[in-house]
Design a protein around this nucleic acid. Structure first.
Lengths: 103, 103
DNA sequence: CGTCGTTATATCGGCTGCCGATACAAAAGT
DNA sequence: ACTTTTGTATCGGCAGCCGATATAACGACG
């Protein structure tokens, strides 16, 4: 018994959600992630726009009412998305704790 | 410019490597992971034996000279595997730090 | 001695998800 | 005028996890 409880986020999705605590558009997300990780993680366009679609479907982000700006589409995290990210942070802390205990 | 530096381990692979700081056989790895995560993560047989094969190919683990025991096959982490896991722990710490800074 | 649950290894198909490549186009810089 | 940057989007390939399935030895219990 014992199915695997909870959701596991990929690195890309985790950082996308973190980026969207304030409204931001796709390209801005890429830059923010690159900045947050000091250039270590560069999310490719394929990953980003694919992930945005699944996150919208899951209701973890929503489209932000952007001024009738031209091409940019802005997104924000939802309350549900926030819950997911907080849970993920707990999982990550467990991984770190287990790693530190052993190494 | 800017390829994504470094390797990202999956949760299963990370825990398998952590389990093998001491020689252990496949089934024992499953149990150890379940124990380490308080039952949160149960690695399925398909994942486990698939991962063991790729880890052997990459030289991150090796087969341990097990006494001519019956069916069990034991494995241990290599120096290279240890390096990979340490790097992964650094990456995880970065994820936690970024999450804590924002949430 | 027979049967059942656990221990133990292994494979396969399906699904998800990341990536690189490619495409297109507006805006800005030179 | 030309190039680079900004910006969104799709597609095929590939890696990896999972559930299902198969096989079999071992121990316990009646």
């Amino acid at each position: 018994m014992g199915e695997n409880t909870g959701i596991v986020l990929t690195e890309a999705v985790y950082y996308i959600l973190l980026s969207l605590t304030k409204p931001l558009h796709g390209y801005g997300i890429m830059q923010k992630i690159e900045e947050m990780t000091d250039g270590r993680l560069i999310v490719s366009a394929g990953t980003l726009y694919g992930a945005i679609n699944t996150l919208l479907e899951r209701g973890w982000i929503v489209q932000h009412a952007t001024a009738e700006d031209s091409r940019r589409k802005e997104y924000v995290i939802t309350a549900e998305g926030r819950t997911v990210v907080v849970k993920e942070l707990e999982r990550l802390r467990e991984l770190v704790a287990n790693g530190e205990a052993i190494l």
